[in-house]
């Protein structure tokens, strides 16, 4: 049975991490969608909403899996959005790892046990990594090289590995992985927005990699579309156009501080060593080489066409 052919009755959608950035984007659209009957929120905090059914689950706890299974099997659930990922500033890397990687193991086990028809997991185009040998446009088949220095990206790569293994084990469940380009918008808080909101952004002298950006409204639409799309697999969710990093910074209202590579690296490593890192080491790759993902598949298979240009997404950041 498929969510699209669920008949007359409305859809029952379960959401983990509903109070995170992704959740805040998605919930209003689900609320508005007449096809959605109720939203089962599995989280530690209760969000607002008329359709919300709240079930408290702490994904980091060892008994999370049985709680999830219970919640998902108690009544029929048509789709689960697993949105419990930390994009904001993270104080404790190990807690984030626990939530994202271990939490995902729990969720996948519960989904498998409950035989849910659909699972949607967000990811990032950053999982491809930024490398000199990448082609101009990365397709979904490209290997996930990630960024070994970064916990943030490595965790996402690991989650994708788990999801892929799950998909092979449970072919009946439609699994959609949405790889988002940096989501920019007034309400977003992720490494890209934190970098671009600075008044002065250090960059590498002589390099100006191509970036993409997706406006938060587009991101929300893409997430919502995954609820009914008759497809599965990975999709790059990108905004219109590409911008060089310098253009993105300029559009976001910041100023560039191009530093020669060796100086930059030394400075970043030194700052990280003393724990005063203002810029994650991980970003070094991404401000060095282009990482442009091809959004064609999302357009053809998922039917997602971005409205906003990367330029507008960055400019939206400035207004906030």
């Amino acid at each position: 049975m498929d969510a699209t052919h669920a008949g007359k009755r409305g859809l029952r959608v379960a959401v983990t991490g509903a109070s995170g950035d992704f959740g805040r984007l998605l919930l209003p659209l689900l609320e508005k969608d007449p096809a959605v009957e109720s939203i089962l929120v599995l989280d530690v905090a209760r969000p607002e909403g008329a359709k919300v059914e709240y079930h408290r689950v702490d994904l980091t706890r060892h008994d999370a899996e049985s709680e999830l299974t219970e919640a998902l099997t108690e009544r029929r659930v048509d789709a689960l959005y697993h949105l419990a990922f930390l994009l904001g500033a993270v104080r404790s890397g190990s807690l984030a790892h626990e939530l994202e990687v271990v939490g995902t193991i729990n969720v996948l086990a519960a989904v498998g046990r409950a035989r849910l028809p659909r699972l949607v997991v967000p990811s990032l185009t950053a999982v491809y990594g930024a490398r000199g040998q990448h082609p101009a446009l990365l397709r979904e088949e490209a290997p996930l090289l990630g960024c070994p220095q970064s916990r943030f990206v490595s965790d996402k790569v690991e989650v994708e590995g788990q999801v892929r293994a799950f998909r092979e084990r449970y072919p009946d469940t439609r699994v959609l992985v949405l790889r988002f380009a940096p989501i920019l918008g007034p309400s977003m808080d992720n490494p890209a927005t934190r970098m671009l909101k600075r008044p002065v952004v250090p960059t590498l002298l002589g390099f100006d990699p191509l970036w993409q950006a997706v406006h938060e409204e587009d991101a929300a639409r893409a997430l919502h579309r995954a609820l009914k799309a008759d497809t599965s697999g990975e999709f790059n969710i990108v905004g219109q156009g590409v911008l060089p990093l310098s253009g993105l910074v300029r559009q976001a209202g910041g100023r560039l501080l191009p530093l020669p590579g060796p100086v930059f690296r030394t400075a970043v490593h030194a700052l990280t060593a003393v724990g005063a890192a203002t810029l994650p080491v991980a970003l070094l790759d991404y401000i060095h080489y282009s990482w442009v993902a091809d959004g064609e598949r999302a357009e053809t298979a998922l039917g997602f066409i971005p409205i906003h240009h990367a330029r507008d997404a960055a400019a939206a950041l400035r207004r906030s």
Partner: peptide, 16 residues
């Protein structure tokens, strides 16, 4: 400026 990575241009195609 473009060479130094400070052009701030917004008229790039996907190949750069």
């Amino acid at each position: 400026l473009a060479g130094l990575g400070a052009s701030g241009s917004t008229s790039l195609d996907e190949y750069g």
